[in-house]
Design a protein around this nucleic acid. Structure first.
Length: 157
DNA sequence: GCCAACGTTGGC
DNA sequence: GCCAACGTTGGC
């Protein structure tokens, strides 16, 4: 059983969009990076991930999701009208797979500075300099530390 | 808007 | 297969 972190820009798709989605479930479409895609192919149904808001006024962890469907081809790669269209992908040879995720819980926003201030997260991939990967593994210890942070009252800044 | 870091592309 | 140029990410 592994743990993950998945980034989304809230302008594109936020935790509240997931709350409103049918079945509180969404395909994690639009990933166009091979390493991130490969991580999705590794995911098993039932595994959990943090939903992370990136490229926004307050980046940080916004909720917990779980994988509800094993990796399968991302339909947007075939759609010429989509921002995620890939001319080199065909239905016979798709390039881009994604999983479906279902909301487990919307948490309070655990901000990036708060994550950086937590000693247990010193080696977390997302906090490493220059990291841009939209899907990353999270260790069991890191998972526990963040769940603990999320359950606390927000720090009064 | 800036800029550092990184992935991808394409010429050779 | 190398590597420079370019595009993207994402925090600030």
């Amino acid at each position: 059983m592994r743990y993950w972190l998945m980034k989304s820009e809230p302008d594109e798709f936020s935790i509240d969009d997931l709350v409103r989605a049918k079945g509180r479930t969404t395909p994690w479409f639009g990933v166009r990076n091979y390493q991130a895609r490969n991580y999705m192919r590794d995911m098993k149904v039932g595994e959990r991930a943090f939903f992370y808001h990136s490229s926004c006024p307050e980046p940080g962890i916004a909720g917990i999701v779980e994988v509800s469907r094993f990796a399968y081809p991302d339909a947007t790669q075939f759609d010429p009208k989509s921002d995620y269209y890939d001319a080199k992908a065909t239905r016979d040879a798709p390039r881009w797979d994604h999983v479906d995720v279902r909301l487990v819980e919307k948490t309070r926003l655990v901000s990036l500075p708060e994550l950086r201030g937590e000693p247990a997260l010193a080696d977390m991939v997302i906090l490493r300099r220059g990291n841009r990967l939209s899907i990353t593994p999270v260790s069991g210890d890191e998972w526990k530390a963040i769940v603990r942070l999320a359950a606390r009252m927000p720090p009064s800044a």
